[in-house]
Write a protein that binds this DNA or RNA. Structure first.
Lengths: 121, 121
DNA sequence: TCAGTAACTGACAGATCTGTCAGTTACTAG
DNA sequence: CTAGTAACTGACAGATCTGTCAGTTACTGA
């Protein structure tokens, strides 16, 4: 499984961050974990209704490989796994919350906006 | 030109942000503009040595469409254009700087790295 | 014995993204 | 008259990403 390459100018800090957080789902997964602390595979399915199982498994796997999450498997039946942020993963808190804060603000100014779009959504 | 779709759960704030900032280059372009204030097409070519001209033009165009940048064309010969952040674009400051700060820190702990860095990749 | 369950994995295909190449415009310096 | 310039644009192709589908494991409860 080849990973996306960010080989821009040596040490662009933004690209370094992107390396871990890029993609359609990773930052959202992290965001949920910052809120919930722990997540099971099935929790994420609920939290991210749009994601396919394949993607979820892959993204979680990559996040574990990158050292952002730990995966704890309980050898029970039916199986159970728990994902948590590592300290390294937790260090992304400022990044993820900045994104969340901006998005929240943006969503508000969209939905609340003027009276213009009272009809939609 | 179809754009990537982020249609996850209604109003996930992180996804809203992603919508503007996702992709390999956009946040880097914004980052440079936060540092430099103004950038010409040729400036970006220098700043982002890895980007192709095609991509640069496209990303700039999208950022303008999204209302994050303004484009000012001087009708001279040879032509000259200047890109600047709009207030809306400037509002992303906390997001971009959080990314830059994290990346900076990460780069440092990488280059200096002994074995202290058990968690990363 | 059989269906049901959680948490996956592999193969594959279509969508999306990114880069390469060639060409454009309107002028100026040689 | 030609080459050079900045800032592009369109067509196309290969790389990468994402989703769909089917299948796996090791149980449990009916």
């Amino acid at each position: 499984m080849e990973r996306k390459k960010y080989d821009c100018a040596v040490g662009c800090p933004v690209e370094s961050t992107l390396q871990f957080v890029a993609g359609k789902w990773k930052s959202v997964i992290l965001y949920r974990l910052f809120q919930e602390r722990v997540g099971r595979y099935s929790d994420f399915k609920r939290w991210l209704p749009g994601i396919s199982e394949r993607m979820l498994a892959r993204q979680l796997h990559e996040l574990v490989l990158d050292g952002l999450l730990t995966k704890k498997v309980y050898v029970e039946m039916p199986p159970r796994t728990e994902y948590r942020l590592t300290p390294f993963g937790q260090s992304l808190w400022p990044v993820i919350t900045a994104m969340a804060a901006w998005g929240q603000h943006y969503n508000q100014s969209q939905t609340g906006a003027t009276s213009a779009d009272a009809s939609a959504k």
